[in-house]
């Protein structure tokens, strides 16, 4: 049965202390990580990446190539994990499905008129159903930011609930596009709405708008997940996406997840990075940690 929106019980009505968030986030960035743990952390990061291509110029060839990379990150160095998933447009799900048939890598598809979300409910639902029918394991939807900012919270809630229904077995990630929400209070509010409407994951950004996944925003969303878990015992996943292109930033994010939510979230079932260039930087760091030599992009695959 589809849930209906009840602001009094569902929203935390918490106002976010921006200065406090910034201070807490700054502390996550000062943790000293020893090289042995760093290596484990980097491998964990690799295993949490949603390798992403979301461009107008995407072709089946590009997607096939990316799917190959998802399974063979850097074959000259054996023993590396593969990424968690590939993330593509609905029209490319079929191609990705075929390319990943014998692999543990999942297929995530964006939907609901990504990235703007400016379309009708019917189109968004059929967009989602199409992606799910093509074989997507995960659906990344965008919320209607215009409606949200206009205060039509029940519209946003109902839309997420409807898409959740259309997903079938696929897990639903809800993109808040925090770069358009202006304040951390709005981020918290949107997180609460998405979580209560049935999101399996909440995700920061489409990657098309700056700023994207800043640590402040991710922290605010992690706190929403924590409060919901404390209240209900239900886990919700988190996916920062956009702007995380260095290993260092990725490790800071892992530290934050561990300290806010705990070890249970340190797996790609509950935490993902949406990124296109992060994987290469992490690979270069892994090789650097093992050989002591700083690496060059010349020796790693381009996509």
């Amino acid at each position: 049965m589809r849930k209906s929106f009840d602001p009094t019980t569902m929203l935390s009505h918490i106002t976010v202390d921006k200065v406090g968030v910034e201070e807490r986030v700054a502390r996550f960035q000062t943790r000293s990580i020893k090289s042995e743990s760093k290596l484990q952390g980097l491998k964990m990061v690799l295993n949490m990446i949603d390798l992403t291509t979301l461009e107008g110029k995407d072709t089946p060839g590009k997607v096939q190539q990316m799917c190959y990379k998802a399974q063979h990150l850097h074959d000259v160095h054996p023993g590396l994990p593969c990424v968690a998933a590939v993330c593509v447009y609905p029209s490319m799900v079929g191609t990705a499905k075929k390319a990943l048939s014998n692999s543990s890598v999942k297929i995530a598809s964006v939907s609901t008129a990504f990235p703007s979300g400016q379309s009708t409910r019917e189109i968004k639902i059929s967009d989602t159903k199409f992606a799910a029918d093509e074989g997507a394991d995960e659906i990344d939807m965008v919320i209607s930011r215009g409606k949200f900012l206009a205060g039509e919270h029940s519209f946003v809630f109902d839309e997420i609930a409807a898409i959740k229904e259309a997903c079938g077995k696929a897990r639903l990630k809800v993109i808040l596009e925090t770069g358009e929400l202006s304040t951390l209070d709005n981020v918290r509010l949107a997180s609460d709405i998405a979580i209560h409407a049935g999101a399996d994951f909440i995700k920061t950004s489409t990657g098309k708008i700056q700023p994207a996944a800043t640590m402040q925003v991710t922290y605010t969303m992690l706190m929403a997940i924590k409060d919901y878990f404390d209240k209900t015992g239900i886990m919700v996943g988190m996916k920062p996406a956009g702007g995380i292109s260095t290993s260092k930033l990725a490790l800071h994010n892992l530290v934050m997840v561990k300290e806010v939510l705990g070890n249970a979230w340190l797996s790609n079932d509950w935490f993902r990075f949406g990124a296109s260039s992060l994987a290469n930087d992490v690979l270069m760091q892994i090789i650097k940690t093992e050989t002591g030599l700083y690496q060059s992009t010349d020796y790693f695959s381009i996509d």
Partner: peptide, 8 residues
């Protein structure tokens, strides 16, 4: 040595 060993 850091310069000499740097792959880039």
């Amino acid at each position: 040595p850091a310069l000499a060993g740097h792959m880039d």
